[in-house]
C-alpha cells in the first residue's frame, strides 16, 4: 500500500515541470560538467600563466594577452579569422539554403542527389583536405592544367603561395565543406513547414518569391539562427583544413586562432600563450552568441 502511494507520489512529482525538467536535462549536464567544465576552466586559467610543456608555470595575469596584442602575427591571425568566418558563413548560408530549396522538390533522382550532396561533409576532413591540397597544388592542380589547355593562362596560378589567393582558396574549400551542413539542416526545416500554409499563399496569388519571403523564410528564421551560430563557431575554431593545406602559411596569411594556438602551444611548447590565444576566441564567440540568443528569443 505504502509502496503504491510512494510510487504515485513519485510519478505525480515526475509530472511536474519543476521536477521533470532538471531530471531530463541531467544526463546532458552531467556529461558536460565532467568532460567540459573542468577542462574549460583549466584552459582559461592556463591562459593567465606562463606554463610550458612539462612546466606547470605560474600566474602572470594578463601578460600573455598584452604580448599578444603587440604581436603582429596575432593581429594578422585575428584579421584572418574574422575574414574567413565572415565570408564563408555568408556563402555557406546562402548556398546551403538555395541547395535545400532545390532539393526540397521532387525530381528524378532526388534521393540520390540528397545523399550525394552530403559527401563533402562526411569524408574525414583530414583526407578531403589532402584532396584540396592536390587540387590547389602549384604543379599538379587540374584547374591550372585545364586553364592552360584552354589557353587562358600561360603560367599556373599560385593558389597557395600568394597571400590573398591562399586565403581565397581556403575559403572556397571551407565553403565546399560547409554547404551540406546548411543544406541538410534547411531541408529538414523546409519539411516541417505545413504544406497548407504554402498552399494558402499560392491560392492567394503569391509568386514563388513572395511565398518564400513571407511564408517560408520567417518560419526558417529560428533554424537559420541556430545553424548560423553553430557554423560560425565551427569556422571560427577551424583547425584541420588550414593545418593540412598551408600550416598557416604563406607569411602567416592563413593562420586562424586555433591553428596559431596549437602551433604555439604544442610544437612551440608555450602552453600558456596557446591557451590565451584559444581563450581569446571565447569573448568574441560570447558576444556573437548573445546576439544570436536575443534574436532567437524574439523569433520564438
Amino acid at each position: 500500500m505504502r509502496a503504491g502511494s510512494l510510487f504515485r507520489g513519485f510519478s505525480e512529482r515526475l509530472d511536474r515541470s519543476r521536477w521533470l525538467g532538471p531530471l531530463l536535462t541531467s544526463p546532458a549536464l552531467l556529461l558536460l560538467a565532467i568532460f567540459l567544465a573542468y577542462p574549460l576552466f583549466l584552459g582559461v586559467w592556463l591562459g593567465f600563466t606562463n606554463a610550458k610543456i612539462g612546466w606547470p608555470g605560474r600566474w602572470i595575469g594578463l601578460e600573455n594577452y598584452r604580448l599578444l596584442f603587440s604581436d603582429p602575427v596575432f593581429r594578422i591571425t585575428a584579421f584572418n579569422t574574422v575574414l574567413y568566418t565572415g565570408v564563408t558563413v555568408v556563402f555557406k548560408l546562402t548556398l546551403g539554403l538555395t541547395l535545400a530549396l532545390l532539393l526540397n522538390q521532387r525530381f528524378p533522382g532526388y534521393r540520390l542527389a540528397r545523399s550525394l550532396m552530403l559527401l563533402p561533409w562526411i569524408v574525414p576532413t583530414v583526407l578531403s583536405a589532402i584532396a584540396w591540397w592536390w587540387i590547389l597544388d602549384p604543379q599538379f592542380s587540374f584547374i591550372n592544367w585545364s586553364l592552360e589547355r584552354l589557353g587562358l593562362i600561360d603560367q599556373g596560378i599560385n593558389f597557395l603561395g600568394d597571400e590573398w589567393l591562399a586565403r581565397a582558396s581556403l575559403i572556397v574549400a571551407n565553403i565546399w565543406r560547409g554547404i551540406p551542413f546548411f543544406a541538410i539542416g534547411f531541408l529538414a526545416g523546409l519539411q516541417a513547414i505545413p504544406k497548407e500554409l504554402l498552399e494558402a499563399a499560392r491560392v492567394d496569388g503569391a509568386s514563388p518569391w513572395q511565398t518564400f519571403w513571407h511564408v517560408t523564410w520567417p518560419l526558417l528564421l529560428p533554424l537559420t539562427t541556430i545553424l548560423t551560430t553553430f557554423s560560425t563557431i565551427w569556422t571560427f575554431t577551424d583547425f584541420q583544413l588550414v593545418w593540412v593545406i598551408t600550416r598557416g602559411g604563406p607569411a602567416n596569411a592563413t593562420h586562424l586562432f586555433v591553428t596559431l594556438a596549437y602551433q604555439r602551444a604544442i610544437p612551440g611548447g608555450a602552453l600558456g600563450e596557446g591557451a590565451a590565444i584559444a581563450a581569446f576566441t571565447l569573448p568574441l564567440l560570447l558576444l556573437l552568441s548573445w546576439a544570436a540568443l536575443r534574436a532567437l528569443r524574439r523569433q520564438l
Partner: peptide
C-alpha cells in the same frame, strides 16, 4: 626556382622532382 614554391610543404618537392618539373 619553379613557380609555387612559396606554398610547398614537405611532400611537394618529391612530387615535383619525380614528375620532372
Amino acid at each position: 626556382m619553379v613557380s609555387g614554391v612559396a606554398s610547398w610543404l614537405d611532400s611537394n618537392n618529391n612530387r615535383a622532382f619525380l614528375s620532372g618539373a
